[in-house]
Design a protein around this nucleic acid. Sequence first.
DNA 1: CTGTATTTGATGTATATGCAACTAATTATC
DNA 2: GATAATTAGTTGCATATACATCAAATACAG
Lengths: 139, 139
Amino acid sequence: MDAKDQALNVARNCFAVRLRKLNRVVSRHYDECFRPFGLTVAQFNLLVAIAAREGTTPSELVASLSLEKSTVSRNVEKMQGKGWVTIGAGEDKRTQTIQLTKAGEALLEEALPAWKEAQKKTEKAVGNVSLLLKEISLT
Amino acid sequence: MDAKDQALNVARNCFAVRLRKLNRVVSRHYDECFRPFGLTVAQFNLLVAIAAREGTTPSELVASLSLEKSTVSRNVEKMQGKGWVTIGAGEDKRTQTIQLTKAGEALLEEALPAWKEAQKKTEKAVGNVSLLLKEISLT
DNA sequence: CTGTATTTGATGTATATGCAACTAATTATC
DNA sequence: GATAATTAGTTGCATATACATCAAATACAG
């Protein structure tokens, strides 16, 4: 097998190559649907994660979303700037608690139809994603 | 269903949320394995894509990887800076052709064991990814 | 042909992401 | 109780990514 065929083989069988491409395509669908709300899919992710656990902490978000702490730190700060969340004192002087504001709740509510649309769009473009993701054992 | 439960529901069922998390986790495995070579998974993606079609063009990479053209432009430029690829004249005066250099080929060769390791690591951490990706109909 | 539309890349700007190094606070060790 | 280790978040830096806009080249319509 020459270098070219080997590369082709890698390109076809690499989990990362395929997953990352899928990720770009799918994320684009969601970004399109959320654009009218001035919302990105990454911000939407954080919003729902925060909404699902009122009074959560950055650390919890790090764990539940497998994000780097610095990413959470900066993205949450940005969302605070937009008035969607408030950052308050936590149990420790180290920790913080994050809450949705009224505006944040309202935004989520408004964006829900767009989310449903994105879900549909994704299934249509990519196939049976539910079935696909069902298999994954991510904590 | 109150707002919190609704958010939980979205968080659990959103394709983007789950896919993006999986993408981060998996990409991290590859990045770790490639780090000793000064290579990122994104660069590896491009390298194998270029190797698989010697003399490809940015446009082709855009199409085959579903990347934005500006992303390809800048990433390929960076890889040229590292001496892994050369950018030459294309058929048009608009287009370019991209070639792996000897160093680029050598790097791919060297990194192959790391890639295999990353594949294994991923299967171990995430489950049967092959089965999972088999279902996807991405062009 | 000539003027318009399309294609191909480059560049400006913004977001998302991660690693390394840092600080402050807390916990564990002795 | 003092010191070491760990934890929580922030900040500096770099890469990856996308959208909008631009310029140059080519293709197309008349």
